[in-house]
């Protein structure tokens, strides 16, 4: 246990960890603060004013429409031949404005709806913390290798796998702690925004349960990203290895494969793209459509559909992470430390 607590201390003492944590806090706080200003709680007066505004807009539209029809009729009476081009068929009588076209909500200021919109902000939070986990995870072990810290430690603790495993455990514990604490504050912040600058209506126990599950999936993805970064940097024995691999995966998966499947007209090409599985993990499922199966000339068409479920995502992401970790531990066990 002493090694585990030592590694927790080492990780928390690192300047990069502290700097990134401050930046993460600032970033999340900025998003929440800016968002709180953009949301406005709707009072009865505001709703009534929006109704009045939309009624007025309807009246103006009706007057414009009546004037246009009258102008058209007058033009026809003068013998103009181009009224259909200028005013449309039947002098535009078919385009009479309808009251439902002027929904009062369009005149309302934006109001944050906690129940409907907070899941999207969980994804934003997960993205930011995953980036933190990636950089901290990669640099924590990468710097240990490149500065000789790992070798020094192995002179004290020669059990290599135990050392690497303890470092990984310390990283994941730290990332988990940061995720849970910041996640709690993030949820509280948006609940407060909803409560005082938006709405928290219809937030039932079931909604909280759903938010909790979304949060768990977010934390799972954050931990997975941290572990993969750690494994890649340990494999390459340098922080840059993980960063390079991330750039390579992005270039190959998100750009190269997309271009290739488009050129080759591969059905459901996005199923070969990594981000599809990250998206599916968050959204519970992603539906991919193959519009090439439709012949629109024959009328409406229901394109072929492929559903990528969160279980499939768990399998793909889990196997990828496991492969990276097994590689890192195998390398730690087998390779000389020079």
């Amino acid at each position: 246990m002493s090694l585990y607590f030592t590694e927790l201390r080492r990780l928390s003492k690192r300047r990069l960890t502290r700097l990134l944590l401050v930046l993460l806090l600032l970033g999340l706080a900025t998003v929440a603060t800016a968002f709180s200003f953009s949301s406005h709680q709707l009072s009865k007066e505001t709703v009534a004013a929006a109704q009045v505004e939309s009624d007025a807009q309807y009246q103006r539209a009706m007057e414009d429409w009546k004037k246009t029809v009258a102008d058209c009729d007058a033009a026809k009476a003068r013998g103009d031949q181009d009224t259909e081009e200028r005013y449309g068929p039947n002098c535009g009588r078919d385009w009479q404005p309808q009251p439902e076209m002027f929904d009062p909500k369009w005149n309302l200021p934006y109001q944050f709806d906690f129940r409907a919109e907070f899941p999207m902000f969980i994804a934003v939070f997960a993205g930011a913390v995953a980036l933190f986990a990636f950089i901290v995870g990669a640099s924590y072990v990468g710097a240990e290798w490149s500065t000789g810290g790992m070798m020094n430690l192995l002179l004290w603790r020669p059990k290599r796998l135990a050392v690497l495993g303890t470092k990984l455990a310390a990283l994941l514990t730290t990332v988990l702690g940061v995720s849970l604490v910041l996640g709690a504050f993030w949820t509280l912040a948006f609940w407060l925004i909803g409560r005082y600058r938006g709405t928290t209506a219809k937030v039932t126990a079931g909604v909280w349960q759903s938010i909790g599950l979304d949060g768990l999936r977010a934390v799972g993805l954050i931990l997975l990203v941290g572990a993969v970064a750690f494994a890649l940097a340990s494999l390459g024995r340098h922080t840059a290895m993980a960063l390079g691999a991330a750039v390579a995966v992005f270039a190959i998966s998100e750009i190269g494969i997309r271009i290739a499947v488009a050129v080759l007209s591969v059905p459901f090409g996005d199923r070969y793209v990594l981000s599809t599985y990250a998206q599916s993990w968050f959204m519970k499922k992603v539906e991919l459509f193959d519009y090439d199966t439709c012949q629109f000339a024959k009328g409406a068409c229901e394109p072929a559909k492929l559903v990528v479920t969160w279980q499939q995502s768990a399998l793909v992401l889990g196997v990828g992470a496991a492969a990276a970790l097994i590689g890192a531990f195998w390398s730690m066990r087998r390779r000389d430390i020079a």
Binding site: S2, T6, G148, M151, L153, L155
Partner: peptide, 27 residues
């Protein structure tokens, strides 16, 4: 067994006290 091998290598942003403190804690 206490050892130094080749040139001394330490994490550059830690102080000497931090470096030794972490090793002492691990040991």
């Amino acid at each position: 067994v206490g050892a130094i091998v080749e040139s001394p290598q330490f994490f550059p942003h830690f102080s000497a006290r931090d470096t030794l403190g972490l090793l002492a804690q691990a040991g």
